[in-house]
């Protein structure tokens, strides 16, 4: 069942709140990267996909891989809200012995693979999509990557291969927030024009507003490409989205919010 746009936006605000609190409490970085992909993850989990704890061992379930594993807090917030594990687990995020570390770990409920090293999610997604085709399943596979991640050669190996296999139930979302760890992503490498690159590689490549959750849900539910192409959503986003003093400021790739900064940030997220 798909939630209404108002509900989706509320979910997104609540995820942002959790992301901010986790970063503040645990002192972990990548806050800007975690905030830029909130709507992408909201759409993936609440947009009608079969991503639910009740299907956790069902091979027919849809698959989602957070390939940009450094946005783990966004994923954890979503998985907790979805009931993959108790919300109380978030209290111990990044503490010694917690299953919820700074990067996602397989074995955590709802998480199949290790990400954090970039460029791993898409090849795995291709394998999942081929496995489904071999076994006659029609589930979907969605991979969320970052724009900086597109520096990795393995991304482009996979980008070449998936269209050759006509994997039209595979969707990639690129969180194009225009920054990577230490510079503008379009300057560090010649990333732009990003949509055209994927299109030239044989993908159904669409540019979307990565904070327009309704549009993201629309594309995630769009019929598979009749030409057999996999789909990539080049999602224009803002790093640090949702908190005015963090937006498009790359210091928040590593900075940890103080108590007063957290309070100011949460005040901007109302109503919760």
């Amino acid at each position: 069942m798909t939630a209404s746009v108002d509900e989706l936006q509320l979910i997104a605000r609540r995820i942002r709140k959790t992301v901010l609190e986790l970063s503040h409490r645990a002192g972990t970085p990548h806050l800007g990267s975690s905030l830029s992909c909130v709507e992408l993850i909201t759409a993936a989990y609440w947009g009608g996909s079969k991503l639910d704890p009740t299907f956790v061992t069902d091979l027919n379930r849809d698959r989602f891989i957070l390939s940009k594993g450094h946005a783990a807090t966004t994923l954890y917030a979503a998985l907790a809200m979805k009931g993959f594990f108790p919300e109380s687990w978030l209290e111990d995020y990044a503490k010694p012995g917690s299953p919820l570390g700074e990067h996602p770990s397989p074995g955590t409920p709802g998480i199949d693979v290790a990400t954090g090293s970039l460029g791993h999610g898409l090849p795995i997604g291709i394998g999942l999509a081929i496995a489904s085709r071999i076994q006659g399943r029609n589930n979907r596979v969605c991979i969320l990557m970052s724009d900086g991640e597109c520096n990795e050669g393995s991304v482009w190996e996979a980008a070449l291969f998936a269209p050759a296999q006509r994997l039209n139930r595979l969707t990639v979302m690129i969180d194009y927030n225009k920054w990577q760890a230490t510079g503008r992503s379009d300057e560090v490498t010649a990333l732009a024009p990003l949509r055209e690159k994927w299109s030239a590689f044989g993908w159904r490549a669409v540019e979307v507003d990565g904070h327009d959750v309704a549009m993201l849900v629309h594309w995630l539910n769009a019929p598979p490409d009749p030409e057999g192409r996999p789909t990539v959503l080049v999602a224009h986003t803002v790093k640090g989205k949702g908190v005015s003093f963090m937006e498009d400021d790359n210091n928040w790739h590593y900075r940890i919010p103080s108590s007063s900064e957290l309070a100011r940030a949460l005040a901007e997220l109302q109503p919760l």
């Binding site: 795995i124 291709i126 393995s154």
Partner: peptide
């Protein structure tokens, strides 16, 4: 293809897919 890193990732996905 001549893309060994990818090949291993694809194999991982196939294994996850049963």
């Amino acid at each position: 293809g001549v893309a060994e890193a990818d090949m291993i990732g694809i194999a991982a996905g196939l294994a996850l897919g049963g």
